[in-house]
Design a protein around this nucleic acid. Structure first.
Lengths: 335, 335
DNA sequence: ATGATGGATCGAAACGTTTCGAAGAAAACG
DNA sequence: CGTTTTCTTCGAAACGTTTCGATCCATCAT
């Protein structure tokens, strides 16, 4: 592999000049630049990113740390992020935290060791110590989905309260009165927000007595909770599930019980469901614009990375409004 | 950040000794090793991977190059790969080729510049020049899914011929006689293999006259082809789709036409479908054991990476047999 | 006692960049 | 015309490792 010195020799200049030519062309004369470039082409020169990274103290890698790599939701995001990063000559390193604070911090620390340029993080921790550790990495970090309270990070998410509100409102309008929220864990930021949205809408509609059961954002617990829910005396006429996998767990339980959806119970959920169109019934849900989410998060990150006075401007925040898509899983009560 | 020299100073040894302590502990006395380690801990020393990579000529990164990052099939794979790689202290860089040979090579060349240790590749090219270029990267490469003919790479896939054979056999046994194969592109290795499996089974059963239509492995073309197929005079009584997204495109067309599945037409497909359990009808399909696939591919790669005489042993190949899962989308003909 | 062997350690030279300060030449200024 | 600026270019010193060859010293066989 040709090095910068080979290029320098061939172009008859010093290696500093070659370096300058590529990093800040305005600092070298047009004539020299041309010589250097043609020498580089002739030798097939490609800078060694490891050497560059070592010298500069940072590499052109971006970390992406998520709770669960196999979540299909993540793939769509990754696709867009990778595309944008590639365009600016950054690579993506992916890592999984298993939604666990300790693992997340371990992974981040490992990425920081690699001198990554920045990080897209789906945070799963909380508390002052957590925020403090995050800050100590001294890394441009954009947080997604879950908000880190007390941290000063760029943040992109969709409006979680509105999401449950939309669904609840929809069900109320269809005449439902006994609506249960199959929620995520209340100690997750998104879980809590979604619960608030539900509660708020129910209260505003004059209800004080409603159920919220925790499905842990996972299919199996959701299945179990639904079983419990649908076999008791006063069963709900509608369920709002806080995410897609719980909705499917819930739906499976409903089918297994022989209860009909939407005739006996309506079901609405948050999150995109790939191939919803062939699911029976098609779920009524609120969707996020994932590629928009990805675009905003990536541009936040790249801006911060490229910006020299990185700490100068305050953290930004974008809250996307999700879109309600009415499927066939919800139906007017009693009709 | 503490460097190796800081550790050396504190431990009262040279930096070479520190390096040795971590790379090959047997070469330093137990006593010295202890001093070094405790100094390292005291200073919170962590080796700089960039410096190591520069000096060694390779980093501890593994590339994963796929056609489409948003394919959910890929997420499950990635999850397992990342887990195993992390365990051996490797990171995963993901990159997308958009199933295009030129882009794939560009991406690989960029990864090679990064001095990655090895690569998991879903190849999308063919021909001598392609193979030649791949070889020139001089990189441990494990290929997945598509076989690179003429190349000497480790290879892991599932048995594509058997996959279509299983489905076709199943349909024949149910009494179907007019079976159409909604195939992938014949110029893709997997597409061709799946076609062969279909043809072979049909021929063995004594049929010479059957249709194969190309759905391009994509949902929209599959939808269109299905529309065409189901609206002509002699329509098939069963369809074998060569992958999951085509199956869903096909199913959508069937539903839109008001044709009933499985009453009017049976549908069977290759590939895992997440949440198949709530799709109506549940697809009859052949599944791959994705985590097994990931485990084998990763271990192939790691072995080659860690093995000094890397070129010594010949490429290995694993063909996994997929599993037939009978759903409700296939039904005895006429009954 | 002598030389050979081997283990532990070290110094120095890489790996391929970037960047600082300096220097020489040309241009601008009074 | 002398002095200051500005523009180009350069040499050298990093960045933080690994590794080669050398040195030192204890052990062993003769």
């Amino acid at each position: 592999m040709a090095t910068i010195r080979d290029v320098a020799r061939r172009a008859g200049v010093s290696s500093s000049t070659v370096s300058l030519t590529f990093s800040d062309a305005s600092r070298v004369s047009a004539e020299t630049a041309k010589k250097v470039r043609s020498a580089a082409v002739a030798l097939g020169y490609r800078p060694n990113p490891l050497a560059q990274g070592l010298k500069r103290g940072r590499s052109r890698m971006i970390g992406m740390v998520v709770g669960d790599l196999s979540n299909p939701f993540f793939g769509s995001l990754l696709k867009e992020v990778e595309r944008l990063a590639k365009r600016s000559n950054y690579n993506i390193i992916v890592a999984e935290s298993e939604a666990d604070q300790a693992q997340e911090l371990a992974v981040l620390s490992h990425l920081a060791d690699q001198r990554i340029a920045g990080c897209l993080l789906f945070p799963h921790g909380r508390g002052a110590a957590y925020v403090e550790t995050l800050n100590e990495f001294d890394l441009p970090i954009v947080t997604l989905d879950h908000k880190v309270e007390g941290g000063a990070f760029d943040f992109v998410c969709s409006d979680n309260r509105i999401a449950t509100s939309m669904l609840t409102e929809h069900l109320l309008r269809l005449g439902h009165r006994r609506i249960t929220h199959l929620s995520g864990p209340a100690h997750f930021w998104t879980g809590a927000e979604r619960i608030k949205g539900f509660e708020h809408t129910m209260r505003s509609a004059g209800f004080t007595d409603f159920d919220i059961v925790d499905g842990g954002y996972m299919a199996d617990p959701a299945y179990a909770e639904t079983m419990r829910l649908m076999t008791r005396s006063e069963r709900p006429t509608a369920i709002v599930a806080a995410n897609n996998v719980m909705a499917l767990g819930c739906l499976a339980a409903i089918k297994d019980l022989g209860v009909r959806c939407p005739e006996d119970v309506s079901l609405a959920a948050i999150d995109n469901v790939p191939w919803n169109s062939v699911i029976d019934p098609q779920l009524t849900l609120v969707e996020q614009d994932l590629s928009r989410l990805a675009r905003i998060a990536t541009s936040y990150l790249l801006e911060r990375i490229e910006n020299p006075d990185i700490d100068a401007y305050p953290p930004r925040e974008t809250v996307l409004t999700p879109r309600l898509v009415v499927g066939t899983s919800t139906k007017r009560y009693g009709s």
